[in-house]
């Protein structure tokens, strides 16, 4: 075995000019993951149950793309290997929350891993939406490991500058 193969962060990344899909490629997601891990281990040290919301040691934070038009917001998330019944999408306070669990295949007991790059475990992703949306006009579909959500924007009333609030004179 060459010594290079023992060094994980040098293991043939960016070969052939290809881009890596690892979360580590994105410094911000990396920072978020590291912070989550730090908090999780801190609360574990306290012996409390704070960090029990999912197995943070194996974060499987999905990557998300958000795009919008005048009347809709389009959110796609990469969730390979997750079944639709293991995904939950909720809308709360202008945030779209995607949570779920990626379960490891457990059909065979006797196995050795040569290489583990994919991530497993629970995840929760809260995505701030760029506009107010109508919760009656949400359509979510799931195909080939990509979650596709279209949210209709709330149609503002005739005055686009904002709702006019009448001021009453108090006698």
């Amino acid at each position: 075995m060459r010594i290079r193969e023992l060094v994980p962060w040098r293991s043939h990344e960016h070969e052939k000019g290809q881009l890596s899909r690892r979360n580590e490629a994105d410094p911000f997601i990396n920072l978020q993951t590291e912070m989550s891990r730090l908090f999780a281990s801190f609360f574990e040290g306290l012996g409390g149950s704070f960090g029990k919301d999912g197995d943070l040691s194996q974060l499987a934070t999905p990557k998300v793309d958000v795009a919008e038009t005048n009347d809709a917001v389009h959110v796609t998330a990469e969730l390979p290997g997750i079944k639709e019944e293991d995904v939950e999408v909720t809308l709360a306070d202008g945030n779209l929350v995607i949570r779920g669990e990626k379960k490891a295949e457990k059909e065979e007991k006797q196995k050795n891993y040569y290489r583990v790059e994919r991530s497993y475990g629970s995840f929760r992703r809260s995505i701030p939406l760029p506009a107010e949306v109508d919760d009656q006009k949400v359509d979510a579909s799931f195909k080939d490991g990509v979650l596709d959500i279209v949210l209709g924007k709330k149609q503002t009333s005739s005055s686009p500058a904002g709702k006019k609030i009448p001021v009453r004179r108090q006698d």
Partner: peptide, 8 residues
């Protein structure tokens, strides 16, 4: 569509 947030 106008991109808002592109992670992948």
């Amino acid at each position: 569509y106008m991109p808002v947030r592109m992670e992948y």
